[in-house]
């Protein structure tokens, strides 16, 4: 059910300037905390009373959370990095172009001026556009609580619609993306041409040797309660000849592993499943075409 738009609820507001201050603050506060990054999900959800935080911790002033760096063979992205900064970043474009490709059409330009990559993942919408490429790239996220810090593979991060393993006093500080050479493809199907939420999205990363798929990693959004990795397809394609038939078969698997929620709005279950097939096929074709020229 779509909710009414109400005036913002009352809350306390803190705006720490460093991770250290944040930790101190988190130790004092009890609960009912929401971190405010770009606010493009949070404020919407507050107006709709989907989220009613008692305390808002604005993390926009924590400089340490905003960076894009290459360290050894990984790209590290601070969670409060704005999506437009990611799109424009040459480090990202050169090393993980799949991510650039996927968020280029996320929401709209002015939203991307505020919206952050951390926010997109923490919201954990089944249709979050940054999730499939990051899943396909084997990314992981760093979670930090006042007295602990851990790295969680993104594939274990999402647990349900709008649910993650993150605890309320944990902040996502950075995203770690391994760099690999290969081909990339991302496709998103919305319901109009511009500025639209994905009905289904598919991201794939692949390496082709000779005539065979050496390694394919593929992830889908909008076809299950969370964004998912399609391991079945990956296993099936490993070492298999690149052909219309193998791609067609992979596409069929995409359809069969799709389990969209019956309550999901915006498209029927049957259409989502069918589109998982079509987009998977197209994404694989693109990879095959690019690698073989």
């Amino acid at each position: 059910m779509e909710e009414e738009i109400r005036p913002l609820p009352k809350f306390d507001y803190f705006s720490p300037h460093s991770l250290h201050d944040l930790s101190t603050l988190l130790k004092q506060l009890k609960g009912g905390i929401s971190f405010l990054a770009g606010g493009t999900d949070l404020l919407v959800n507050m107006k709709k009373r989907i989220t009613i935080p008692k305390v808002i911790i604005d993390i926009n002033r924590i400089q340490e959370l905003s960076f894009i760096e290459k360290r050894s063979n990984n790209i590290h992205v601070g969670s409060v990095t704005r999506l437009n900064n990611l799109i424009e970043s040459s480090i990202v474009q050169e090393n993980v172009p799949l991510l650039t490709e996927a968020i280029r059409f996320l929401a709209s330009h002015p939203i991307r001026n505020r919206a952050t990559i951390g926010g997109n993942l923490c919201t954990a919408s089944p249709a979050a556009d940054a999730a499939p490429p990051l899943l396909a790239l084997n990314a992981s996220v760093k979670l930090k609580s006042p007295d602990d810090e851990k790295i969680v593979p993104l594939s274990e991060f999402f647990v349900g619609p709008r649910q993650t393993v993150r605890k309320h006093n944990e902040i996502l500080t950075e995203i770690i993306i391994p760099c690999e050479k290969g081909s990339n493809a991302f496709m998103k199907l919305g319901r109009r041409r511009g500025f639209t939420l994905s009905v289904v999205s598919v991201a794939a990363f692949g390496i082709i040797k000779g005539d065979k798929f050496e390694d394919i990693r593929i992830a889908l959004g909008g076809v299950a309660p969370t964004p998912i990795r399609a391991y079945k397809i990956e296993e099936m394609l490993k070492g298999v000849e690149v052909s219309d038939r193998s791609i067609e078969k992979a596409a069929e698997i995409a359809k069969s592993i799709s389990k969209p929620s019956k309550r999901a709005k915006r498209a029927s279950v049957e259409y989502r499943e069918a589109m998982a097939r079509v987009l998977t096929k197209r994404v694989l074709m693109k990879i095959a075409f690019e690698e073989r020229g």
């Binding site: 779509e2 319901r191 109009r192 041409r193 511009g194 500025f195 639209t196 709005k265 915006r266």
Partner: peptide, 11 residues
């Protein structure tokens, strides 16, 4: 406007 889709400039 997310679910009632009027044409954008892209459309």
């Amino acid at each position: 406007f997310t679910d009632y889709l009027i044409p954008t400039i892209m459309d």
